[in-house]
């Protein structure tokens, strides 16, 4: 573990955290424009966070230490994941610390923390959100891990740096059936895990249909800022994984400043494209019923499973 590697990891964390609210602002803007509205500027999420940051904390009188700790654990795990995922460079010091499985389980840790906080408030909505969130997360888990399986078969490792390096060295692998199927599977899971339409509506105001928002109802002030920031970061982490695991070109394999700058530009372009796709799809889709979501996730699981079998039978 060398100092440059640590610096790269820190840089990645800062980069993702700085970009995440902007990217969310961009999706909202694209969506507004497609719906014929003017929309808020893309720095609006940052403004919201700043506003919440200085507002008073109002806490449900039934809560305990879990409620106080949950936003810290959620955001802390999101920061660590932002440092782990190769957004800029594969030469991060954290590459041997945790692999794709560690990333998935760290994200699960954040989900569990927020679900517990939702239950701690003592309202029906918090419990409802927590129950639904855990249901969707549990059912999405097989797809995620089997998709990782598919990716690590061709690279021979589940380490993020190795998978990226493998695709860089064999450009044809990027368009292999295994990769395409795994990409499709992970794309569906991204939508489910980050609470986007058609699974959850991030801008809903109707408590009965909420999933993520129902858990955060009781949070206010800096706590709300933390949770929203973590949600933004988690969205960007998923999009970065989609971008850099499947189309890694542009990513730095060293820690030289110039390469990192190029990598930042490349990943920003990729993320903007992906965010635009997410926003566009949301305009044309409606939220599905909660009990139709397992069907969607089952379909994505079939794709992931086919990806693994393709890697075996077509190799």
């Amino acid at each position: 573990m060398n100092p440059t590697g640590i610096a790269v990891a820190l840089l990645q964390a800062v980069f993702v955290i700085a970009c995440a609210p902007l990217l969310v602002g961009w999706t909202r803007l694209v969506r507004a424009r497609l719906e014929g509205r003017v929309g808020a500027p893309i720095r609006q999420p940052w403004r919201d966070l700043r506003k919440w940051f200085v507002k008073e904390r109002m806490v449900s009188e039934h809560t305990g230490w879990v409620f106080a700790l949950a936003p810290l654990v959620l955001t802390g795990s999101a920061v660590l994941v932002a440092a782990l995922v190769p957004s800029l460079s594969t030469s991060s010091a954290l590459d041997q610390v945790g692999d794709l499985f560690a990333v998935v389980y760290l994200l699960l840790l954040g989900t569990v923390a927020l679900s517990l906080a939702g239950l701690d408030a003592g309202t029906a909505f918090g419990g409802m959100g927590a129950s639904r969130e855990m249901t969707i997360t549990a059912i999405a888990e097989p797809t995620v891990l089997v998709a990782i399986f598919a990716l690590s078969v061709s690279a021979g490792s589940s380490n993020l740096g190795v998978i990226v390096a493998d695709t860089l060295s064999r450009p044809s692998a990027a368009a292999s059936p295994t990769n395409l199927l795994a990409l499709a599977a992970l794309a569906v899971v991204t939508v489910a895990e980050t609470g986007r339409i058609p699974v959850d509506n991030p801008s809903t105001h109707l408590e009965l249909t909420m999933i993520h928002e129902a858990m955060t109802l009781e949070f206010s002030g800096p706590d709300l800022a933390m949770i929203e920031l973590a949600a933004h970061v988690r969205l960007v982490v998923f999009l970065t994984l989609l971008a850099n695991l499947f189309v890694p070109w542009g990513i730095a394999t060293t820690a030289q400043p110039l390469h990192l700058l190029v990598a930042a530009g490349a990943v920003l372009v990729k993320l903007t494209v992906l965010a635009t796709i997410v926003a566009t799809v949301e305009v044309f889709l409606a939220k599905v019923r909660l009990f139709r979501v397992p069907e969607l996730l089952a379909a994505s699981f079939v794709l992931a499973f086919l990806a693994v079998t393709a890697s075996f039978f077509l190799a």
């Binding site: 041997q96 945790g98 560690a102 490792s157």
Partner: peptide, 17 residues
């Protein structure tokens, strides 16, 4: 070819929190 460091991962999580 895979590595994990539970100790560093915990440390990273603590630093994040």
């Amino acid at each position: 070819q895979a590595g994990l460091s539970p100790l560093m991962l915990t440390l990273g999580l603590l630093i994040g929190v």
